[in-house]
């Protein structure tokens, strides 16, 4: 595995780097937890890796809390997200997804930007962020910023809208409009760590004083070419009391969620299994323990 590596330390150096390599073969990486495995199996002679991990710019490395929402730099690692008190309080779904990702060791180096840009349909953070209706701030080579909802950013398995002259700078999650929440992440796999989701469901409901669902987000992972936002299910739940969702409505939600999925057979599980488990897990969201 021989390749060139460049390690910009600031936004300016990064932009320069991008400009210099536009005509060549380059890859961006920060935590390297996915890229190195991929490179072991591919030819790397002509490759330049732009190593983002040395960039000190706060826009890339910080978690910035504003009244309008929270901005997470693309280089923030997964462990930081899991430990952040504001995220823990306002976006439990994201914190739970972060804590469920891979293992403690990997969470210390893998970044949120990397997890998103891999565009894996089973990406844990991606699933939570789509449910949270997060958007991307993409830095273009000319220094301008392009905004795009994360849902639109994903175009297929391992495919995003990111162009060769762009780099993901940060993710913005809009602030909650109410303080009462029902928010969580369900991950189905075969073991409790180092696991790629077979099915995942993220849900984030903002509740009114009477526990009515005012704003809802539901996303599912590993059951379609991309993470999917379940709009019909989210709309259906509007204004329902989160504590008193009737069993027939629970089944309806599970059905709507299942309808937005298009799972396939692969080595980890069959489409049949994914469908069943998606339905059962979706049903369980509103079950009172």
């Amino acid at each position: 595995m021989n390749f060139n590596i460049e390690s910009p330390t600031s936004k300016e150096e990064l932009l320069n780097c991008l400009r210099n390599h536009q005509s060549g073969y380059f890859r961006l990486a920060a935590g390297f937890t996915d890229l190195l495995i991929e490179l072991k199996k591919s030819k790397t002679e002509e490759l330049t890796v732009i190593n983002l991990s040395q960039i000190k710019d706060k826009q890339f490395t910080g978690i910035d809390i504003q009244p309008s929402g929270i901005r997470i730099g693309a280089l923030v690692n997964v462990a930081q997200i899991g430990k952040n008190q504001s995220i823990r309080k306002s976006f439990p779904v994201l914190q739970q997804a972060a804590d469920a990702l891979a293992s403690g060791q990997i969470r210390e180096v893998a970044t949120i930007g990397g997890n998103i840009c891999q565009a894996s349909p089973s990406g844990d953070l991606s699933c939570a962020l789509v449910a949270l209706k997060a958007s991307c701030e993409i830095l273009k080579m000319d220094g301008t910023i392009r905004h795009e909802s994360l849902n639109d950013f994903f175009r297929g398995p391992a495919v995003t809208s990111l162009q060769k002259n762009e780099v993901l700078k940060s993710i913005v999650i809009p602030a909650n409009q109410t303080n009462k929440l029902k928010s969580g992440f369900i991950k189905i796999g075969k073991r409790s760590a180092m696991e790629c989701s077979i099915v995942s469901i993220s849900y984030h409901f903002q509740l009114g004083a009477d526990a009515a669902i005012l704003h809802s987000g539901i996303a599912i992972g590993a059951v379609a070419p991309t993470v999917i936002f379940c709009r019909e299910a989210a709309d259906f739940l509007h204004k329902l009391n989160v504590n008193k969702i009737h069993e027939t409505d629970q089944l309806k939600v599970a059905e709507l969620i299942q309808q937005s999925a298009s799972p396939i057979d692969d080595q980890r599980a069959s489409a049949w299994y994914r469908n069943e488990v998606l339905f059962n897990s979706a049903k369980s969201i509103f079950e009172q323990d």
Partner: peptide
Amino acid sequence: SFHEYKLLTAVD
């Protein structure tokens, strides 16, 4: 690979 061969981990 350990990714697809599911050796259990300490937390299991």
